[in-house]
Amino acid sequence: MNRRPLLATIRILAATIFFSGFPILSAWGQTDDGSVFRLDRLPVLIFALVFSAAVLLYTRWAKQGKPLFIRKIAGIDAVEEAVGRATEMGKPVLFIPGIADVEDIETIAGLSILGRVAKIVAQYDTPLSVPVRYPMILAAGQEVVEQAYMEVGRRDAYDKDMVKYVAGEQFAFTATVNGWMMRERPAANIYMGAFFAESLLLAETGNAAGSIQIAGTARPEQLPFFIAACDYTLMGEELYAASSYLSHEPLMLGGLKGQDFVKIIIIVAIILGAVLATLGAGEWYHNIFDVG
């Protein structure tokens, strides 16, 4: 009998009890007016610890060589195809890492994917254009692309102007990029990161320019626009998984499996909550998740 899943669950629960014990003990002797720890946020801490433990355990297993199954994500597989198309056509690849600043985790995900895309682009010797909206992203983007070119031994082909600052204003940025798309007609447009009202303006212009388009964002309100105008769309968590998926590194893929484990816990919690609420006995259960 395979006892690994059972052992994993026991380890994760043990880690949770161990770490959450500290704040519980520290809060034990405190009075109401002198409390330093926010007891009302204890469920969040417990969840964060379970989540961290799961991600770390799976990452460790991946490091030890345990095979992990990751489902295929069509949008990410299409990246190589899109770059190949651009190479055949002799046209550039446009990559936009969102329009938010570097403190946004979606932008960091976008930059991580940019690193992987830049490697493919460098191997195929295809022109790359990365317009950005913030100076910090300019510096980070140039670093990422330069490193990618160096790693595939094409440092000589790297041009600093591949990543360029366009405009700080949202619609000035959009107008510039749209104008560039209509003039240069890139073969592939890749949008990965945080997008707002400009998402459809960019994607529709790219569609009119005849480019193959791959988009990824974690913002549900922008997803319908990308789905309508792009060939492939990465939805929500797929954006964060893309970099790990493209890397094919077991260490990175371990994090994705840890995420899946927590998703199972959440699904069970939702079903339990729905059953309790239907039976009219869910008050205490609701209070656990009512974080101040």
């Binding site: 991600v55 974690a218 939805m235 929500g236 968590e237 790990s244 994090g255 995420q259 998703k263």
Partner: peptide
């Protein structure tokens, strides 16, 4: 989508 994205963001933050 929001729950999935939040978990993805948390996982990525942890990896970083």
């Amino acid at each position: 989508i929001i729950i999935g994205a939040a978990l993805g963001a948390a996982s990525m933050s942890l990896r970083i």
